[in-house]
Amino acid sequence: MKSITRLGWTAYAVAAATVVLDQISKLWVLSVLSREQGSTLPLLGPLHLTMVHNYGMSFGLLRGNDWGRWLLIGFSIVVVIGLAIWARKAVKLLPALGIGMIIGGAIGNNLIDRVQYGYVVDFIDVSRLYFPWVFNVADSAISIGVALLLIDSFWSEEKKLSHQTE
């Protein structure tokens, strides 16, 4: 009988590391750029640090409403709890890593930033590469986490299909 190793603690460790990296990067950027909206500093080629106060969510939804801020905080708490429960059941590395990155990104952006500043601190600016959004470490972690979950889903489906055809 094969024992199942649960990887919940792996997901929680990745979430904690993501929050730490996200918050350290934001503190550093705030010390370099200050909190002034739009202040920018060229780094390497198309990479700039640009201070953006993100009050809303994707495409500016819920922007400018104080109730929207608290709605996003509440929604994030529900998402983090749901993902933390899912993480406890993770038995494969890719989903554990992905879930951890999403949890850490949600905590960094939508909980800590929105409670502490009232907005999300965005600063990674590669708009010179025709990518119109300014983002941060937590955003990157969420995107990579979702990609890892999708990759695992495709691999699992592919394995399932190959076993059915044998």
Rank of each mutant, 00 (worst) to 15 (best):
H48I: 02
V121Y: 09
A17K: 11
A84P: 03
Q116S: 11
K92R: 10
W28E: 04
G118W: 01
Y119R: 04
W9A: 03
G82D: 06
V121E: 11
A11C: 00
K26Y: 14
D113C: 06
H53Q: 15
V115I: 15
Y12T: 07
G118H: 02
V120S: 00
Y12R: 15
L33F: 15
I24L: 14
R88S: 07
H53D: 05
W67N: 08
Y119I: 10
G100D: 05
L33T: 13
V32E: 15
L61R: 06
I24F: 10
L83N: 02
G104T: 08
V80E: 06
S39Y: 09
L97P: 03
F75K: 00
V80D: 07
V52T: 10
G38C: 14
I107R: 00
L30E: 13
L49N: 14
N109G: 10
N54A: 12
G45K: 11
P95F: 03
L21I: 10
R35D: 14
A16N: 10
L111P: 00
F75P: 00
G104P: 06
P42W: 02
A13H: 01
G45V: 12
G68Y: 02
G105A: 13
L94K: 09
A90T: 05
A106L: 02
H53T: 03
F75Y: 03
G64R: 10
I24G: 06
T18R: 06
Y119K: 06
Y119C: 12
G118T: 01
L41V: 04
G38N: 14
L43K: 14
G60S: 10
S58A: 15
S3M: 11
I102L: 06
A15T: 08
N109Q: 13
D113N: 11
V29K: 15
W86T: 04
G74V: 04
L41A: 02
S3V: 12
S76F: 04
K89H: 08
M57A: 15
I112T: 13
L49P: 15
N109K: 06
D22W: 01
Y119T: 06
L7F: 12
I81E: 08
G60M: 05
W9N: 08
G60C: 03
L27W: 12
G98N: 07
D122Q: 13
L61H: 03
